[in-house]
Design a protein around this nucleic acid. Structure first.
Length: 197
DNA sequence: GTCCTGATGTGCT
DNA sequence: GCACATCAGGACA
């Protein structure tokens, strides 16, 4: 199996980590069930200087993990029915996280289809709520270490793609900050008006 | 294809 | 109360 990304990969400035996550493989192991997908879209969220970030108000029980050690998972519940999963970045004490927004499914596609109750592979993980559903990520994984064995990220040397950036999706503040990164031309990137600019 | 809306729980003001 | 780092399904074209 390709090597897991080391702690030092994550404990860097969020805006460096976010584009570097593209092309890596997120693996979820639940019991004997393995699902994985290539990361094709992420967004960067920073500290109090970022009005759209959960860390903007300062430390709260909900966002405390964003201030903690890099390389852990920050999972939150949104809109009453969905989860979103982040990778914590920056040095301990500095808030930062990258939201994983879309995956290109690789292993366990049959399982993912069952979990999502759909048949089309294209819709399995092209959105933050969708990928949590198909990878079985919920609050039980909040704080999980990406260097552990339940949820982790590996580098298989995938290169040769082009990275594009755009404003972040679904936020009202700081739309001038172009902190959404995605792989140009990949079919599994979420569809929106910024993709072809 | 586009636009609009309802579902739904938690954490803030 | 109300906003929210969302999604599915409908109306319309």
């Amino acid at each position: 199996m390709p090597a897991k990304l080391p702690r030092s990969f994550y404990s860097r400035p969020t805006l460096e980590v976010a584009p570097d996550l593209l092309g890596k493989i997120l693996i979820r192991i639940k019991g004997k069930t393995v699902t994985s997908g290539r990361i094709v879209e992420v967004e960067a969220y920073r500290n109090a200087d970022d009005p759209a970030s959960h860390a903007h108000p300062g430390k709260t029980p909900r966002n405390i993990l964003m201030f903690g050690e890099a390389g852990h998972a920050y999972v939150y519940f949104i809109y009453g029915m969905y989860f979103c999963v982040n990778v914590v970045t920056e040095k301990t004490g500095t808030a930062g996280a990258c939201l994983i927004r879309a995956l290109e499914p690789l292993d366990g596609i049959g399982v993912m289809k069952k979990r999502r109750h759909i048949e089309k592979t294209i819709d399995l993980a092209n959105g933050p709520g969708k990928l949590c559903q198909s990878m079985s990520v919920d609050l039980a994984l909040n704080g999980e270490d990406y260097l552990g064995n339940k949820l982790f990220i590996v580098d298989d040397g995938y290169v040769g793609f082009r990275i594009k950036r755009s404003p972040r999706i679904g936020i009202r503040y700081a739309v001038d900050k172009r902190w959404r990164f995605f792989i140009q031309g990949n079919s599994y990137v979420t569809r929106n008006k910024f993709n072809d600019l």
